[in-house]
Simulated scan of single mutants.
Amino acid sequence: MAQLQDETSRTDLLNRLKRAEGQLRGIQRMIEAGEPCLDIASQMAAVRKALDSAYVRMTVCFMHQELKDRLNLQPDDVTQLDTMLGDMQTLLGKVR
């Protein structure tokens, strides 16, 4: 399978994952400190949402890269592709 070639997209994904990693460490500290389960569950839901968002972003970046390369799109077509995939990312972000 192809890799993400766009450095900006890779940096964005890595930053999203690092934030989620920080949230997970915070959850571990909450459990160690004996925080209430409801508070912990709330933070777990936030991490799941962050990971889902990162997954959607990665998928859209991959789709953009592959469609642009395989279809040999012109600059105007790339702009339309950007718009369409941006809308798709927004829609997929609301699935949960």
Rank of each mutant, 00 (worst) to 15 (best):
R16E: 10
M30A: 00
E66M: 11
R16T: 07
D69M: 10
M1T: 12
A20S: 06
A54G: 13
L51N: 09
K94Q: 14
V95H: 09
Q89T: 04
L92C: 14
L73N: 05
M63P: 02
L51H: 07
R16C: 07
M44E: 04
T11Y: 13
L92T: 09
E35Q: 10
G93T: 04
Y55F: 11
R16L: 14
P75E: 07
T90M: 14
V60E: 00
Y55A: 15
Q65C: 05
P36D: 01
S9L: 02
V60Q: 00
M63L: 14
F62Y: 14
G93W: 04
V47A: 09
A41W: 01
V56I: 15
G34P: 09
Q80A: 07
D12N: 14
V78M: 07
Q28F: 04
A2V: 11
E35T: 00
D77C: 07
Q43N: 06
E35K: 07
Q74G: 04
V78Q: 01
T90C: 11
Q28L: 09
L51A: 09
R57C: 07
G26D: 06
L4S: 08
D69H: 08
E66C: 00
G93R: 05
T83H: 10
E32H: 08
L67I: 12
D82V: 03
I31G: 01
